[in-house]
Amino acid sequence: MKKTVLAFSRIAPALIERLEQNFTVIVPDPKKGDVAAQFDAALPKAHGLIGAGRPLGRKQLAVATNLEVVSSVSVGYDNYEVDYFNERGIMLTNTPDVLTESTADLGFSLIMSSARRVAELDAWTKAGHWKASVPAAQFGTDVHGKTLGIIGMGNIGAAIARRGRLGFNMPILYSGNSRKTALEQELGAQFRSLDELLAEADFVCLVVPLSEKTKHLIGKRELELMKPNAILVNIARGPIVDEAALITALQDGTIRGAGLDVYEKEPLAESPLFKLNNAVTLPHIGSATTETREAMAERALENLTAALLGKRPQDLVNPQVFKD
């Protein structure tokens, strides 16, 4: 008898067809009523789950008595109660690496657009304010040669650092849990404590995973350590920044600006951020390119298939639960 796979977000029809070669696949359909209710009803049958964006843990999975693996179409896994997965012996997989370059592109685009006020001046031009040479009130700030500080020098942080150093001749500072000697040699990157980095950098880019330790890592105190002309970029997770403190800092000029792809509450329907010219606000699109999302879904399918066929998945978050 085939094992059952349940999708908990939209999966491309072509991938569904491939899964159906080995498994019985259930995809909740909005046309058939409440998607959440369909998902809950199918959980007891599911041996594997695939998707993204849905919190899953003790409360949600209590009835999923046959569950062997959750294959997340994401690199981050803060939506999942990993301790509970370990307790149950449920494998969790993610999709690292395939989104590194696309997310780094997005991070650097936020640096550029915040510095040169791209979104603001696009709206200013379309509103008919361009009557003569652009006045000083609309000037931006240079990116090349400025100091780039990266908090969390993992794969994505390193990719952003390379863009800054090799493309824009930016000195690179970084902070994190460990030294990256290879990057220090490759890019001349210099390790700093968090406070030192905040005080020295012209651009501060957050690329750390969300945890109890990193929640509100950047708050009022940290924002006040930054230069008045500095720009904060967050492509990690929204709760890493105290959003209320950031809004105040942007309003009173504590820092020059912010480029944001993530927020404490998502989707962000309304916010004081939307009224601030010095905040660029994107709808969590770090990996949202056609090529990258297809690659992520492909990797998630491979991980799921391996797990349900008794093989070790390539991207196993909790390897201790795998049984040969």
Rank of each mutant, 00 (worst) to 15 (best):
Y77N: 12
P319Y: 15
S133L: 14
M112F: 07
T305L: 04
N66A: 10
T289Q: 09
K311S: 10
V5A: 11
A52T: 15
N234V: 09
L194E: 10
F274L: 07
G253P: 00
E184M: 15
I247T: 06
G167L: 06
L15F: 14
F23L: 07
L56E: 11
L206G: 13
Q185D: 13
A137L: 14
E87Y: 05
L166M: 11
V208W: 07
E212M: 02
L6M: 04
I247W: 02
H144D: 09
D105R: 05
F168C: 12
V280C: 09
L309E: 15
P319M: 14
I218R: 02
G188K: 01
R116Q: 01
S113L: 02
E294P: 06
W130N: 03
G157Q: 09
L246E: 00
E294V: 14
M153W: 07
F168N: 07
R10T: 09
L49T: 10
K32R: 14
A269C: 04
K31M: 08
T305F: 00
K31Y: 04
V143Q: 05
D195W: 03
N94P: 02
N318V: 06
A132Q: 07
P239A: 07
L304D: 11
G167K: 10
T125C: 12
L19F: 14
V262W: 15
V233K: 11
S211Q: 01
V73E: 08
I156A: 03
L250K: 06
A230W: 04
Y84R: 09
D202G: 12
K2V: 11
E68W: 05
L148K: 04
E184L: 14
R299N: 05
A189H: 06
K227T: 01
W124H: 03
G259R: 13
A159V: 02
V70Q: 03
I150A: 08
P44A: 12
R165D: 09
K213Y: 14
T95P: 05
V262F: 15
D40W: 14
A230C: 01
S178K: 13
A52N: 15
V207W: 13
P272M: 06
T292W: 05
R162F: 03
S271Y: 07
T289I: 08
L194P: 04
R293D: 10
V317F: 09
V317W: 07
N318I: 08
Y174F: 05
A307M: 08
A132V: 04
D252Y: 00
V27K: 05
A230G: 01
R10P: 02
S114E: 13
T93N: 03
A115S: 15
P135H: 09
G53K: 14
L225V: 01
A136P: 07
G128T: 10
A41P: 08
E81D: 15
A123S: 09
A119Y: 02
G76R: 02
D315E: 05
R165T: 05
A12I: 14
M91S: 00
H216Y: 11
L6F: 10
A245L: 00
A306T: 02
R58G: 13
Q21W: 10
I172E: 01
Q38V: 11
